[in-house]
Nucleic acid binder design. Structure first.
Length: 231
DNA sequence: CCAGACGTTGTT
DNA sequence: GTCTGG
DNA sequence: CCAGACGTTGTT
DNA sequence: GTCTGG
């Protein structure tokens, strides 16, 4: 699955990785994005006078627009690709509210003799990439809360060494199709929700500091354990 | 018709 | 054990 | 995902 | 909002 990730690239690096997308200035690097926290996502056509596509901030943990309270968001940090089309919480977002979640790595915890060791997984070289995401808007009185979830799929060979699920990563040539919801035909993008190739990724152990959701900073992604090279 | 649920992961 | 907060 | 809390009454 | 269960 995916319960913690990073987005460390600065605005100019992001602009190069996502041509045509404008990123707000002062987007500080994040080394430990946890559920309930805001993150940068790319959507098309939100808000008055929207230039599409655009980067906006949303809170991780999808709260469906019909939810009575925000608690459900805690459970909806991930959505299984296999069942998206049927689940009431995800069906409509999959059709009408898809997004790209901007990231450059994610953490998975490897179980080792009762212990949990955090591993950091990224695209080799560290370029920014995008998780497949869904979003919704929830109203808390006068306040509009935009939230998102990260879609998961089967693991590839690399991540599969520690866990059977991984976030779905959309390759750059799929960005436009994923964001284009104008056809309201999600079947046409379902094929993008496949395991990203192991050969293009790398994974290594990091400090257990990252266990604490309050931890932050570049030290979190320094290799501190075995590099895993499995494909 | 109304009431109530609506989700994922991991572990046992 | 289970829920909330980050 | 992990960390941390998990409760009531009354008084200041 | 939309679906399932009663």
């Amino acid at each position: 699955m995916c319960g913690r990730f990073t987005r460390t690239a600065d605005v100019s690096t992001l602009a190069a990785a996502f041509p045509g997308v404008e990123f707000p200035d002062g987007t500080a690097p994040r080394y430990n994005i946890a559920p309930t926290q805001p993150a940068v996502v790319i959507v098309e056509g939100i808000g008055p006078g929207a230039v599409s596509p655009r980067a906006v901030s949303m809170v991780w943990g999808l709260i469906p627009h019909w939810a009575k309270d925000r608690k459900i968001g805690h459970s909806l940090i991930n959505a299984r690709a296999e069942t998206l089309a049927e689940k009431p919480s995800f069906r409509t977002p999959f059709r009408d509210r898809r997004c790209l979640v901007v990231a450059d790595g994610f953490y998975e915890w490897r179980k080792e003799a009762g212990r949990k060791v955090p591993m950091y997984i990224r695209i080799a070289g560290g370029r920014p990439f995008a998780f497949a995401g869904l979003w919704d808007s929830w109203r808390d009185g006068a306040e509009e809360v935009r939230t998102f979830t990260i879609i998961t799929t089967a693991s590839n060979g690399l991540v599969g060494a520690i866990h059977d699920r991984m976030p779905a990563i959309i390759p750059p040539d799929g960005y436009a199709a994923w964001l284009d919801v104008s056809g309201h035909r999600p079947e046409s993008v379902f094929g993008l929700l496949v395991p990203y190739p192991s050969a293009e990724m790398e994974m290594f152990g990091v400090s257990a500091e990252v266990n604490d959701p309050r931890a932050e900073g570049p030290g979190l992604v320094v290799p501190a354990g075995p590099a895993w090279l499995i494909s």
